[in-house]
Simulated assay, not measured.
Amino acid sequence: MRPVLELGGTHVTAALADPATATVTRRVRRPLDARGTAEHVLGTVVRCAGDLDAPAGCVWGVAVPGPFDYDKGIARFRGVGKFDDLYGIDVRAVLLDGIWPRPADAVFLNDAHACLLGEWRAGAARDHHRCVGITLGTGVGSAFLVGGDIRHEGTGVPPQGRIDLVEVGGRPLEDSVSRRAVLARYGRGTDRAVDRALDVDRALDVGDVAARARAGERHARDVLDEAFTTLGAVLAPFLRDFDATALVVGGGMAASWDLLRPALRAGLGDTPVTLRAAALGENAALVGAAAHTAAAR
C-alpha cells in the first residue's frame, strides 16, 4: 500500500492505495478552501496527511491540479481562481518538513492524469489502449493516455495535453464549461429576484441546477445542454485525431451524468468513441497517484 494525497477545489484526501489491486484502504478527508491563504491550504493538507498515520520513510504520491511544476513540486497557480496564494511555494519541501511520520519523498502528478490512470487500471477505461479522460469541476482537466502512459504532445493532443487551453469563440474553454461558467450562465437567465437569491446563496452548485433541470425547469436544462454540447464539439476533433476508443468523464459535475451525457454525445456527433462516466469515483485519483509513485521509483 502506498500513501497518497489528492487535492481538489473543496477538499483534500489522504489514503493508502494499492496500484496492483486498485484498492484503497485507510482514508482521511478534510474540507479545503482553495481561495484561502497558503498557510490555511498547506496546513490543512499536512494535517490531513498526518492523520493518515502512514509508515515513516514512505514516498507519497500527490495528485494536484495545474498549473503546477510537477517535477520540482512547486505551485504555479495564478489567475485560475484557486490556490493562487500558493504561487512559487515549494510544496514538496512543505510536505516533507510537515508530515509526520516523516516521508522519504513526494512525487506529484496532475489530478486529471491520476484519475484516468486509475480508471485505466480498474475502471471505465479498462481494456482501452488509447483513451481520453476529462474531469469537470472547478475547471476542466484532461488526460490523453496510450497503454498506460500519459501523452503531453503528439497527434490529437492539445497544447501541453490541456484541453482547457483551447478557446471557444476567442475565450478560454472554461468560460463556457466549468462550475463558475454554468452558475454564471444560469444566474444571468433568471429573474431579478432569483439573481438576488443567487448572490446571497453561495451554496448553490451545479448539482442544484441539475436538480432544477430534472424538475422541469427549461432554463436550467438549456444551460447544461449548452455547456456540455460545447464541450463535446471541442473534444470531437482531438478524439478523432488521437484515435481514442473511449472518453471517460469524472469530477464533481459527472454526478449529473443523466443530463450531461446526452448533451456531450450530441456535441461529439458521429465521433466513434465509447462515452463513459468514471466508475471509481474518488478512488480513481488515489489509485492513479499510487501507480504513478510506483512507476517513478
Rank of each mutant, 00 (worst) to 15 (best):
V168R: 07
G50M: 01
D51A: 10
V24M: 10
P237T: 11
D164I: 02
L42Y: 00
L239N: 05
A106I: 04
V166T: 08
R218I: 05
V194H: 09
R76P: 00
L231Q: 07
A254H: 12
E6F: 13
V41H: 06
A114F: 13
H292G: 08
D69E: 08
A93L: 07
V273L: 05
D241K: 12
A20Y: 00
L5E: 03
L259D: 03
E39I: 04
L16N: 03
L173Y: 04
A236N: 04
L264V: 05
G9I: 02
R35S: 01
I134A: 05
G170Q: 11
G267R: 03
R130P: 00
L268W: 13
G139K: 14
L286M: 08
I134V: 15
V200A: 14
G189C: 08
A295C: 07
D51T: 04
V182I: 15
T230M: 10
L165S: 09
A181V: 11
R221H: 11
R92D: 02
G189E: 13
C48K: 03
D205C: 15
R218K: 06
F238L: 11
E282C: 10
S176K: 10
T274C: 08
A63V: 03
A56F: 02
A236P: 02
A125H: 06
C131A: 15
G189F: 05
F238Y: 15
G8Y: 01
F238P: 01
R297W: 05
L109S: 11
L86D: 01
Y87P: 00
A34C: 07
I74K: 13
P262S: 13
L275R: 01
A263E: 07
D199G: 14
T135L: 13
P101L: 12
P31R: 04
G118D: 09
A181M: 07
T138V: 04
L109C: 12
P101M: 09
C58H: 03
T274N: 11
D105K: 13
G50H: 02
D201C: 12
G267T: 03
G189R: 14
V209F: 14
V249G: 04
V46A: 09
A181K: 14
C58L: 00
A210V: 00
G66Q: 05
P172W: 09
G57Y: 07
D149P: 00
A184W: 06
A56W: 02
E174R: 02
A233V: 02
A263N: 11
G61V: 03
R180N: 11
R121Q: 14
A291L: 14
D53S: 15
E6S: 15
T135N: 14
V24Y: 09
I74R: 15
V168E: 09
F242V: 04
G61S: 10
R47H: 02
R30C: 05
V91R: 02
I134H: 11
A22Q: 03
M253H: 15
T230I: 12
G137P: 05
L198H: 10
W60Y: 14
V166R: 07
L86F: 04
P67Q: 07
G269N: 12
G147D: 12
R29E: 08
G79K: 01
G43D: 07
T37Y: 10
T274F: 14
G123K: 00
A277V: 05
S256F: 11
L96T: 10
G9V: 06
V273H: 06
P262I: 09
K82D: 02
V132E: 04
V41T: 08
T10S: 15
R261L: 07
R192P: 00
R171T: 12
